[in-house]
């Protein structure tokens, strides 16, 4: 009975990017949108549960993705919901190996009474993010709902891009190195610090940014070096690494000392008892890189303004497929996926 009570309603944890969300997708959405088993040669469908879907068009792939964005507060240190909406979709395309965006769509749902000035500020921010990404919004839609029927503003963006080869999140092989393109945990901790009335005085900024330029640079400089890619958004690096490891059938060993994490992010992490590995990033990617190409990939990443803090953080092993193991310098532990929305804890 209590089991039922928990399952007959959608809960916040079902949108938090962790295991609960994956189960909801598997149980509800995959059942509805499963593709005919005949088709897959020319199709990456929802069943792949990758960052985007893809359809074969001649000798290339058309990659598509869609993302709805809700965030409280809509303006946060380092960004806003508009920038998030553009970066989220552009980055999902980029980590599929498709950094050259053909076009974006933008659908906005507004709550009655939402300040016009805020909307314009958000749209201006979207425009700036589009310029950074070299992307254009080519179609849009607006709806308004009654007061209280929606929380301020919801933005959906969809994107399309062409790619000669797809980079999947399932392509890790034993021996591959795991590279992160920059510091971890900035977005999630910045938003967390403004929520729950933590009353912290700290300079924390979200990393929200389109990183398709960075991905393009590394794909060009080291063709074929990247075996797998994923952006560690909701659920953080822990969830992204779990998905990559289990889909690829490899183990991942992470060296904690190598994780690039800002001191302020570590500080908040200690105060509220939340592991930066579990926290969202909105301008980073995790790359599986062939061991012989790691030097070149790092060099290219670090030469780019959005990749200055790039680091090798781990290695893939044949052993323990699907497990993500962290070497802390004191010992080793399994990295668990977050169960739901992250909340500050006291014990």
């Amino acid at each position: 009975m209590s089991h039922l009570a928990a399952d007959d309603r959608i809960m916040l944890k079902h949108g938090a990017g962790g295991r609960a969300m994956r189960r909801l997708i598997e149980d509800a959405f995959l059942r509805a949108f499963a593709t005919d088993p005949e088709v897959p040669a020319g199709l990456v469908g929802v069943a792949a549960m990758d960052d985007g879907g893809a359809v074969r068009l001649g000798d290339r792939w058309l990659v598509m993705t869609t993302d709805s964005h809700v965030i409280q507060p809509p303006f946060f240190p380092g960004g806003d919901i508009g920038r998030l909406a553009v970066a989220g979709t552009v980055n999902d395309l980029a980590v599929m190996g498709a950094p050259d965006v053909l076009g974006l769509t933008c659908a906005v749902i507004l709550e009655e009474g939402f300040p016009r000035a805020d909307l314009e500020r958000i749209l201006a921010s979207m425009r700036i993010a589009c310029d950074e990404a070299g992307a254009t919004v080519i179609s849009g839609d607006t709806k308004v709902m009654g007061k209280g029927e929606i929380d301020g503003i919801v933005i959906n963006t969809a994107g399309m891009a062409l790619a000669p080869h797809l980079v999947r999140d399932a392509g890790l092989r034993p021996g591959d190195r795991i590279v992160v393109t920059g510091t971890l945990g900035d977005h999630g901790m910045a938003v967390m610090a403004t929520r729950h009335g933590l009353a912290l005085d700290v300079d924390l900024r979200s990393d929200v940014a389109p990183i398709n330029g960075l991905i393009r640079a590394v794909m060009t400089a080291a063709p074929g070096a990247i075996t797998a890619m994923k952006d560690p958004t909701r659920g953080g690096a822990a969830t992204a690494l779990h998905e990559m490891a289990s889909k690829s059938g490899v183990g991942v060993m992470v060296d904690e000392a190598a994780l690039p994490v800002r001191d302020t992010v570590r500080g908040v992490a200690e105060l509220v008892g939340i592991d930066p590995l579990l926290v969202a990033n909105e301008g980073k990617a995790l790359l599986g890189v062939r061991a012989d190409a790691v030097g070149r990939v790092l060099e290219t990443l670090r030469a780019h303004p959005r990749g200055a803090d790039a680091a090798v953080i781990g290695v893939c092993t044949e052993d323990r497929p699907g497990m993500v193991i962290l070497d802390t310098g004191f010992g080793r532990r399994l990295v668990a996926e977050p169960e739901g929305e992250l909340l500050p804890r006291i014990c």
Partner: peptide
Amino acid sequence: MCLGVPGLVVEVDDLTAVVDFWGVRR
């Protein structure tokens, strides 16, 4: 059981203090 965090007192104001925890102040 109880997350206790050490920090450096920056200023004291009667019954409260501003404390620095690795660059985070509260």
